[in-house]
């Protein structure tokens, strides 16, 4: 019943968004090029971005999911009744028990909760790294449950960025190659991808390490390369799974400062799993999980 009301309210919100002016149309241009099925919806939402973006909450403030159903909210991710179960031997473990979340464009959100609460599993569903047993994930207006694996791959390539706990850099590629590989895959020219990689590497403070192999870099540097890789193609959402778990507090702070910088300066939507309260202080709000449900 509650979900029904939410959907009704959201429809209303979307309709409102369409009517809202076109002042910021340039912002949406990149997304138009991406060519997703739901391009119009995406564009409409983007048009509303600056106008309707609610004031960022103070760091660490928790927002109950229901609170998102206000009018004028520009939702970029919507997870609806997500259920995910895994088979552990013969036992079925229900990790996510019907979670519904909404994340707004430009938000920096932390997903927190005790071990085994389903934080990473939720991130994987929202980031299209996994497929829920039931429920759906709508990103930028596109219903991803209708996509085939190949389409999801293409969607990830163009729209999403990932930062993994253990950096997950390709060891045989240099820092800049790791960063521009996805741009190559997008079919960008050599000049385009090399300059984009150099630019983002500069932005993460590693402009002088372009041709360094990951094995020759510290953990903090590797994670910054990983962030550069995640952001090189201007994704609409950046997903980070415990990005500071393997870093000391100094490097963790550097990484979080970078996240905050991209979030503030570029309006980058970031969804981050963490279990450190001080990490959450960097975020706009926290989604807390417990036993596979919203707390």
């Amino acid at each position: 019943m509650e979900n029904k009301i939410e959907r009704e309210m959201e429809k209303e919100t979307e309709n409102k968004n369409i009517e809202i002016g076109t002042e910021n149309i340039e912002i949406g241009t990149e997304n138009i090029e991406i060519g997703t099925e739901n391009i119009e919806i995406g564009t409409e939402n983007i048009e509303t971005e600056n106008k309707n973006m609610p004031d960022k909450k103070e760091a660490g403030t928790e927002i109950v999911v229901k609170a998102l159903n206000e009018k004028n909210v520009d939702t970029i991710i919507e997870g609806i009744d997500i259920v995910r179960t895994f088979l552990m031997g013969e036992v079925e473990v229900r990790v996510l028990r019907g979670i519904s979340v909404k994340i707004r464009r430009g938000e920096f959100v932390a997903i927190m909760g005790p071990s085994g609460s389903g934080k990473t599993t939720l991130l994987n569903q929202l980031g299209l790294l996994d497929t829920p047993n039931s429920g759906k994930v709508i990103i930028n207006g596109a219903d991803t449950s209708l996509m085939f694996d190949r389409e999801k791959g293409r969607f990830r390539l163009h729209n999403l960025g990932y930062v993994f706990q253990d950096y997950a850099l390709l060891p045989e590629l240099t820092a800049s190659e790791n960063v521009y590989i996805s741009l190559m895959m997008q079919g960008k020219s050599k000049a385009e991808y090399e300059s984009a990689a150099a630019e983002i590497m500069e932005a993460v403070g590693l402009g002088d390490r372009l041709s360094q192999l990951p094995s020759k870099m510290s953990g903090g540097q590797q994670q910054r390369v990983s962030i550069a890789r995640a952001l090189a193609h201007n994704p609409i959402i950046l997903f980070a799974d415990e990005p500071c778990a393997n870093l000391d507090s100094k490097n963790s702070k550097e990484v979080l400062d970078l996240f905050k910088k991209f979030n503030k300066e570029l309006g980058q939507t970031i969804v981050m799993v963490t279990h450190e309260d001080w990490h959450a202080e960097y975020t706009d709000r926290v989604i807390r999980l417990k036993d596979g449900m919203l707390e």
């Binding site: 790294l129 190949r150 791959g153 293409r154 990830r156 390539l157 163009h158 999403l160 990932y162 993994f164 997950a168 390709l170 060891p171 590989i181 996805s182 895959m185 890789r229």
Partner: peptide, 16 residues
């Protein structure tokens, strides 16, 4: 295996 996973995750196509 893990590298393949990462490549897939960042959108490198399977046939590539």
């Amino acid at each position: 295996k893990r590298q393949i996973g990462v490549q897939k995750a960042i959108g490198i196509e399977q046939n590539v």
